Amino acid sequence: MKKFILSICIGVILALTLTSCDVQVGVKPRNKTADKNSAIDKDETASLEGVEKININIEVADVLCKSCNDNNVRLIVKNSTSFDGEVVMKKENENLNIKENKSTKEIGSNRKSRKIEIYIPKEYKNDISLSNGVGDIKMEDVNGDNVSIGNGTGDMDITKINVKELVINSGVGDTTLNLDRSPKNMKISGGTGDCDIKIKEVNGDITYSGGVGNLSIIVPENAPIKIKTSSGIGDRHIDAKVSEENKYTFNLDNGLGDIKVTN
């Protein structure tokens, strides 16, 4: 009985202590003020008439590039109150340029809160160039001919795109590709970070040149590929069942990290 009373007293003391220290126990309701980060600063569209290439050049932001059913390209910029570098969309000859004018402020941790969304009509099938300095890149369901994606610092997530030529340059960050059908030619250069690739249908060659990080590729069984690998420091696990057709070649070169190819 004395132990039971003692336990109750200790519990009461702890509860009073946590309350006096402003410590809250349990589920805390979401602070509605956090929704200010989704404030839209710009929402505009541009015609694709006569456009042969879309150039996207961003300094600091998380960038989403996605297909849409509209006829025009749509640019949405969110949470730019701490920036003085405006994001401008302008048509110049055969190019549609979306560019962030360089900010005069130093890059700080609060600057990555900017979000940029670019919606490209599904009917567009010409060239796209996307580069970002600091921030994550997500590209989804985009069509194109020659597509290049470059990131300085941040992760890249590329899903279900339909392009002929794909070039990816990654500085620091992980890269994820989930493709229904691989391009005719895909070249990936990695600095520091892992690269994970999933392909449902192999339709071309892959050249991978990595710095530091693991490479994982998943291909369908009996894919018509020949796999060539080389690595400085790291293991190579080629466990995929492939056909003897050797129609396409995977040249996989890694500096420091494992290479794994499976079904």
Score class of each variant (00 low, 15 high):
K78Q: 13
N37W: 09
L96R: 05
E59F: 09
N110E: 12
N71C: 04
L130K: 04
L64F: 10
P121V: 06
I76R: 12
L130S: 01
V163T: 10
I120E: 02
I58A: 04
N146P: 07
S109D: 14
G133P: 03
E59P: 00
S38E: 14
V134H: 01
E100Q: 15
D145Y: 11
K125E: 10
E123I: 14
I98R: 00
T45H: 03
S47V: 07
N110F: 12
G152S: 06
E100F: 03
K42Q: 12
N95F: 06
S129N: 14
S131P: 00
K112T: 08
D41I: 11
Y119G: 02
E117R: 10
L75N: 08
G108P: 00
V147K: 00
E44F: 05
I107Y: 09
E49N: 15
F83E: 12
N132H: 05
D157H: 14
A39K: 12
G85P: 03
I161L: 10
I158D: 04
V88P: 00
E106P: 07
S131C: 01
A34D: 14
T159A: 11
F83P: 03
I161E: 02
D43M: 05
I58M: 14
V147C: 03
I98M: 03
C65V: 15
S131E: 02
I98P: 02
G108K: 03
S131L: 00
I58F: 09
I116F: 06
